[in-house]
Simulated assay, not measured.
Amino acid sequence: MAEETERRAETPAEVNGAVGVFVLLGKQLKLLRERAGLSQREFGNLVGYGPDQISAMERGVRTPRPEFLEKADEILNAGGLLKAVIPEVEEAMSRARTRHPEWYRSHAAMEGEALELHHYSNNAVHGLLQTEAHARAVFAKRRPFLDEETVEKRVADRLYRQQVFQRSPRPVVSYILEEMVLDRPIGGARVHGEQLRHLLSVGTMQNVEIQVMPTRLEEHPNLGSAFNLLVPKGHGQVAYLEAQGFPQLITDREEVRKIADRYGIMRAMALSPKESRSLIAQKLEEL
C-alpha cells in the first residue's frame, strides 16, 4: 500500500507547476558554467557543492538555494541573471507542500526542521548520505520494478532531503553504519567508489559524525532493524522505523528512551569518527 501511495505522489514542483522554473534555471546554470569553462566538479568546489548536487540542479531535480544563486551569479559572471530569479524560486519553494508521499510526510517534515538527527543503518547507506548514482541504482533494482519516471522522482526527492545539511541553523547529525554496508558495491565499482568518497566528504562536516560498527564485534544492543532518532523543533525526541515499506513513528517517551539508550551504547562500541574515516579510506583504496 505504501508503495502504491508513493507511486501516485507528485513532487511539489509538479503539484504547483513549478517544475518549469527549475528546469529552465538548470539549463541557464549549465550554459553559464560551460561558458566559464568549468566542469561540474570545478564549479562545485567554488560554490561548496559536490558534482552530483550541481548535476541535479542543472537537470532541474534539485532546488537551488538563494545563497547558492547569489554566489553562482558572481562566479559565473551572470550579470544578475541568476539573482533575478531568486524571488520566483522562493515562491515556488513556499508553494510546495512536500516532495514526499502521504505516508512519509510527517517524518519528512520533522526531518527538515529537526535540531538533531541520529541514524543506525544495518543493510543500506542512509538516504541522506547517498550519492545521486547510488540512489538511482537502489531504486532501479527495487521489486516490483519502478518505471523510469518514478525512479527519477524518487532520486530527486532523496537529493532534495539532503538540503538539511545546508540549512541554518545546522542540525547535529550522527550515523552508525554497519561495516557490511560499506562492502556491498551497489551500482558497481565506480558508483561504489563515489559513494565511499562521499561518506568521507560528509564526515568532515562540523555538524556530522559518521561511525562504523565493525563486523568483527560478536554482538551489540541492536541486532534488529535500522532506525532513526530525531529531535524535532519544539518537541521531544521521537523515533522512526520502516520495515518492508511499512513506516512507524514512535512518540511514546519510554519506547523512544529505550531506542535512544541502545543507540548511545552502540556509539560507544563503534569505531570513532576518525577510525571510521580511516576504515572507509582503506576500503576505497582496495576497490
Rank of each mutant, 00 (worst) to 15 (best):
A96E: 11
H107C: 05
T204C: 01
I54H: 06
R154P: 02
S55H: 07
I210M: 01
Q130H: 01
E6H: 09
Q282K: 15
V202Q: 06
R59H: 13
E275W: 04
R190M: 07
M205Y: 09
S225L: 11
V23S: 07
R161C: 06
D157E: 15
E218D: 12
H235D: 12
M269T: 02
P101M: 03
E14V: 11
L38K: 08
P171L: 07
A109W: 08
Q40C: 04
T5S: 11
R65H: 14
A243P: 05
Q195R: 01
G245W: 00
E132M: 02
P66R: 03
G26I: 00
M1I: 05
W103E: 10
Q244P: 00
A137D: 05
M57S: 06
T251A: 12
K233T: 08
A108R: 07
V19Y: 11
V231A: 10
V155N: 07
V21G: 01
Y49F: 14
E178C: 13
R190C: 03
I75P: 07
E4T: 09
Q53Y: 08
R95M: 12
V151W: 06
G26H: 02
V191F: 03
T5Q: 13
P51I: 08
A18V: 02
D261T: 15
P221F: 03
A114M: 05
Q282C: 06
T204D: 11
G80T: 05
H107L: 10
E6W: 09
L24V: 09
P171G: 07
Q166Y: 14
R216P: 05
F227R: 05
G60P: 01
E58P: 13
D261H: 15
M213V: 02
A260N: 02
L287N: 06
V89T: 00
G50R: 13
V231M: 15
H134L: 15
L25D: 00
L81G: 05
E74D: 08
D73Q: 08
M269P: 00
Y49D: 09
L279Y: 06
S225F: 13
E152M: 07
L117V: 13
I186D: 08
Q166R: 14
D157W: 13
Y104N: 10
F246Q: 14
P87E: 08
E67I: 04
F246M: 14
A137I: 03
M269I: 00
A189Q: 13
E152A: 11
Y120L: 11
T150P: 02
P221N: 07
I54T: 08
I250N: 03
V138M: 14
P185F: 04
H192Q: 08
V191P: 07
R8A: 12
G112H: 09
L115A: 09
Y104C: 04
G50D: 14
L115Q: 14
G193K: 12
G112C: 03
H107M: 08
G79M: 07
M180V: 12
N207Q: 14
A137F: 06
A18H: 09
P64Y: 01
R262T: 02
I210R: 03
V15R: 14
E4Y: 08
